[in-house]
Design a binder for these strands. Structure first.
Lengths: 201, 201
DNA sequence: GGTTTATTTGAAACGCGTAATGAAAAATTC
DNA sequence: GAATTTTTCATTACGCGTTTCAAATAAACC
């Protein structure tokens, strides 16, 4: 079997090693200095390559930032789980989880920006990430809590209710973050209001 | 009265004329070519000045984009009002308005991006705009519809419910726009679900 | 009219994300 | 070992938003 002349493509191991390195450096910069500090020039210096080399491995900056989503969503989920730990009934759990979710994003604006505002609306580079099931991470807990609260509900109903709740909470967090000068009602009032229709359904 | 030597400051009329010109050109570019086409270089060429001159008149690009919000919000409101025109009962009006609101933003991603995703989270340049009461434009209609549906409710309760509804709808629109590859429930399902708790409260 | 002064405007530059294209590297072929 | 080939990497450049600071402008003063 004669192979074609030419430089061989990167091996799977090389690809993984490079992506892992980029991801770790990106997260390191992000954790130390925040969202704005994660620039391609900065990141490439840390990785030890030219900025444009990153584009040979990733479709764009958005794809790199998506590598950071998993960590952030895990942290948010840990925060929510911590807040519901001492709750004994399902309604209290849901209320505490809802409140914890929104206040997490309010108190971590860089995280919010990373996950919800860096994907350039209209560009579907996020599709592969989503199809890998990553959207559920950090959000599935609400589906579980709702199922525990309403064990007899049909799966499709649980999906609609939990996904509407998540979208609604994201909207509240967006408003708190983006239009922070507005006198929004208190977070607990808004989250309780959101939850009212979800629980009563 | 001896005035100090030196070039006189711009008059109020000059200030207004320039800002109006910038606003009109920005809107013209936006309408013709979309969000991405509204760049400072492009805009300054159209206005007939250097890009940096824009910064002597506006705090930054965000402030210019905010000038466009009013038109977009008016259009969105007209769309919603059109959809509720033939509704005869308040619950149907609310359902139709909620659905129209979310689908408007879903179907106008550039408008969504302009209003909700161009203000650079964490930077409070939007405060002056907000304090001028502009956030209410396009959103007050939900307060009115809710008041009509529930005339006996306390004002503070109407505020919480309507503002939570608006935030929730924005969240749904954000998810549809940003995470468009995810299999969200249908818009009507989600808006009905959002509305369930708002109406029942 | 020339000088001084205060304000406005714009040239030059910076780092940003990214595209186009040439140089470098690593393999096979002869 | 030189030539060819294919892939990888990096240089150069572009338009982006924005800052710094010099040039230009328009007024009062002498």
């Amino acid at each position: 079997m004669t192979k074609a002349a030419g430089r061989p493509p990167r091996s799977d191991a090389e690809i993984l090693e490079f992506r892992t390195r980029v991801s770790e450096h990106a997260m390191s910069i992000y954790r130390a200095e925040g969202f704005e500090a994660v620039s391609m020039r900065r990141l490439s210096k840390r990785v030890g390559c030219a900025p444009t080399t990153l584009y040979a491995h990733f479709a764009g900056k958005t794809e790199i930032l998506m590598l950071l989503w998993a960590d952030v969503l895990s942290e948010m989920e840990a925060h929510v789980r911590d807040k519901i730990q001492d709750k004994t009934n399902t309604a209290d759990s849901l209320a505490a989880a809802t409140y914890a979710f929104v206040t997490y994003w309010r108190d971590h604006p860089d995280d919010f920006r990373l996950v919800f505002m860096s994907s350039n609306v209209g560009k579907t580079d996020v599709d592969s990430f989503i199809k890998a099931g990553n959207v559920d991470r950090g959000f599935a807990i609400f589906k579980d809590l709702l199922r525990a609260h309403d064990p007899g509900a049909v799966d499709a109903d649980i999906d609609i209710r939990s996904e509407t709740l998540v979208a609604g909470m994201i909207g509240v967090a967006l408003c708190l973050n983006t239009i922070s000068g507005y006198a929004w009602p208190s977070v607990s009032r808004m989250t309780d209001q959101l939850l009212a229709g979800i629980i009563a359904s």
